[in-house]
């Protein structure tokens, strides 16, 4: 299939969304926190510059949605980086050390795959003071399993190569071989799987925010906006439909982009 075209289309769509989310709020006369109780749940209109209407406190939905996109993307990208660090380190070590250690480490990954991590994250969110750092780490900590598997497989084949042999013979330490010689060769495949991790992180973040356990008011994210939208969907459907469709669009784009990149770079997946 025309992988290149789908990469271009979804890539530029995502870029557009990101740029509008960054720049858009400046062009609007409203900010994300100012309430206006005389103009609640207004329908979208060009006349008073409420492009997406207003929410149940009269706040401008366009600016809030853009803020939501920013927060969602930020959380997802940072969380993916967290899972990248954990996954690459774990997978590279398992693959490089090999043998029983590798078997045990991968058995642990298999086990963790089946656990209801999200329940732990909810527990974490309720038990501790919520802040961005906790959200990043919590979401990152549940999405590293795929990365660990992929990286381990790749490392297994890399470690038999001559340059690794040479490094080992000259007495380079294991940790240094992993970070200086193996890791750089994993970049391509890692980029692909980060692209596929981002939508998963977005899902978790919006799930938490939807349950009211994510970012706190007046900050917002796409999940929190959907949650707010559900409460008013009968009278003011746009309050739900705008953030919901943007969330769906973003997720769809990332998934298609990741799939396209994988077809391009990961030889094992090209049919």
């Amino acid at each position: 299939m025309s992988g290149n075209r789908s990469i271009r289309i979804t890539g530029s769509l995502l870029l557009t969304v990101a740029i509008v989310a960054l720049v858009g709020p400046w062009a609007s006369p409203y900010d994300y926190a100012t309430t206006n109780l005389e103009n609640i749940l207004a329908a979208p209109s060009l006349r008073d510059m409420h492009l997406f209407g207003t929410d149940d406190l009269g706040r401008d939905l366009f600016v809030r949605t853009m803020l939501g996109i920013r927060v969602t993307l930020l959380v997802a990208i940072v969380a993916s980086l967290v899972s990248l660090v954990i996954g690459v380190t774990y997978g590279a070590l398992a693959g490089f050390v090999g043998g029983r250690v590798d078997a045990a480490m991968m058995r642990l990954v298999d086990t963790l795959y089946a656990l209801p991590f999200i329940f732990f994250v909810i527990l974490l969110m309720v038990a501790f003071e919520r802040n961005f750092l906790l959200i990043f780490v919590a979401i990152g900590a549940i999405n590293w399993l795929d990365m660990a598997r992929i990286v381990r497989g790749q490392t297994l084949s890399l470690r038999e190569r001559e340059f690794v042999e040479a490094a080992r013979l000259t007495g380079v330490s294991t940790l240094r071989i992993v970070f200086r010689h193996i890791a750089p060769n994993l970049v391509g495949i890692v980029v692909v799987y980060v692209t596929l991790t981002i939508p998963q992180a977005i899902l978790v973040e919006s799930f938490l925010s939807y349950l009211g356990l994510g970012v706190q008011e007046p900050q917002t994210s796409l999940g929190a906006l959907v949650d707010a939208g559900v409460k008013h969907m009968e009278g003011a459907p746009w309050v739900l439909l705008v953030p919901a469709s943007l969330l769906a669009l973003t997720l769809l784009c990332f998934n298609f982009l990741g799939d396209g990149l994988r077809d391009l770079f990961d030889a094992r997946h090209t049919s």
């Binding site: 939508p199 939807y210 559900v230 739900l240 439909l241 919901a244 997720l251 769809l252 998934n255």
Partner: peptide, 22 residues
């Protein structure tokens, strides 16, 4: 299938309620 994977349950559910129930 790709759409189904991408759209979270908490978006599908209200959308279906809005359409089929409301």
């Amino acid at each position: 299938a790709m759409t189904g994977i991408s759209i979270p349950v908490f978006v599908i559910a209200p959308a279906l309620v809005l359409l089929l129930a409301v």
